[in-house]
Computed example of a mutant assay.
Amino acid sequence: MRQRPTALFALDGGNLPRLFPEDVLSSLVGLVDIDPALTVSDFDDAAVRPRLADTEILVTGWGCPLITPRVLDALPRLHTILHTGGTVKKLLATEVWDRGIAVSSAAAANALPVAEYTLGMILLSGKDVFTAREEYRATGSPTGHVRRHDIGNVGRRVGIVGASRIGRRVIELLRPFDFDVVLHDPYVDAAEAEALGVRAVALDELLASSAIVSIHAPATPETRHLLDATRLALLPDGAVLINTARGSLVDTEALVKELATGRIRAVLDVTEPEPLPADSPLFTMPHVFLTPHIAGSLGNELRRLGLTALREVERLLAGRPLAHRLERAELDRTA
């Protein structure tokens, strides 16, 4: 009988039962030698150090300590890191790839609820639901809203900024509806955009012509404040800006000034800074729908992240390539 590979959880122990509910954990334990009672929060912990020398697979997640060259030195048999979260940019030293260690991420699984949240917000924004709610509360009558001719989702242009996993999933989810979808992504040419079922346009054109703009680009030095005061001013009157990516992509000060005019609206699940200070005007502005970074996996959606890691283990043991392997070259253009 083949010996099971030795694995180790390196993540916040409080998340373990959410990521690996009983049936998923049982399946994992049946495939690898892993102790569900041991979750690493410090690789220097005396209770952890003896386990490191034999560890071949690290199952990481939120709360995992940084994996530095010194940590790698203590993991001489490590060949695979299975991350149950999305980004690994701040978690893994580049030496991980230098040493030939395979890295897999659950980013594709985590993209699904973000895209679903975005779709919901696009549909609601097209009907201007948030304004209607406030007007109904204030007047007790829906008459003003239902007589408006500038709302509805037929033919409305939606601009997608970034053909990331999430951006592509949003495009897919929008297909059954009567939207006109355009895309800006510097890494996607016209032919690839056409294959996605959208039209590639320059960023300024997208901003100036879209009724709803949804941001799905990665946070990199190049994309910091991608939407600054000049670009925010391009948005048409009544436009809605949706950000479920990273707060740093939008200049918060410039956005607050633009929102204060009442000219545009915003749906923000991420902000800069995050969390916002208690006195941020974004909390009380009438044209802002603000949520506390909840678009990603929550509740029973976390199970899907654990299942992603389990499926990768199954592929490893079957001698098949990882389905969600992350190469170092991708880091510069991923979140």
Rank of each mutant, 00 (worst) to 15 (best):
N243I: 07
R328L: 13
S248L: 01
L234M: 05
L305V: 15
L234W: 04
A295F: 12
L316P: 09
G247K: 07
E274C: 05
P292Y: 13
S297K: 14
P277L: 08
L232A: 01
H293I: 05
L317N: 14
R231E: 02
N300L: 10
R265A: 15
P275Y: 06
A318F: 14
L235F: 02
G319V: 11
P281K: 12
M285E: 02
G262N: 07
H287D: 12
I242N: 04
V267I: 13
L259S: 00
S248A: 03
G306Q: 12
V313Y: 15
L235C: 02
V270E: 02
P281F: 09
L302N: 03
G296Y: 04
F283C: 01
V267W: 09
V313M: 09
L302W: 09
V313D: 14
V270I: 09
E327A: 15
H287I: 12
G319C: 10
A260K: 06
A318I: 09
A318W: 10
R303C: 06
A323F: 11
L322V: 09
L310S: 03
V270D: 00
V256D: 01
P273Q: 03
F283P: 05
R246K: 03
E258D: 10
E301G: 15
R231I: 05
T334S: 06
R320S: 07
R328A: 08
H287F: 12
A318L: 07
R246L: 13
L302S: 05
H293F: 08
A329E: 15
T271V: 03
A254F: 00
N300K: 14
R311C: 12
P292V: 08
A254T: 03
R303H: 14
P321H: 10
V250R: 01
D269G: 08
R231T: 04
P286K: 12
E272A: 09
T244M: 01
T334V: 07
R328D: 06
R315S: 14
V240T: 05
E327T: 10
V270N: 03
P236L: 11
R325C: 12
I242T: 01
R320I: 12
A260E: 10
L322W: 06
R265L: 07
I264H: 11
P286T: 10
L310I: 15
N300D: 15
P321N: 13
L249Q: 02
L232C: 05
P281C: 11
P236W: 02
L326A: 00
D251M: 01
A245F: 02
T284V: 13
G319E: 10
R325S: 11
L298P: 12
V288Y: 00
E258T: 06
E314N: 03
S297I: 08
D279S: 08
G247C: 03
L255G: 00
I242F: 06
D269W: 07
L307F: 03
A329M: 14
R231S: 09
H293M: 08
L322K: 11
G296E: 09
E330M: 15
E274G: 10
E258C: 05
L305I: 14
L331G: 02
D279F: 09
R325W: 13
P281M: 14
T261G: 10
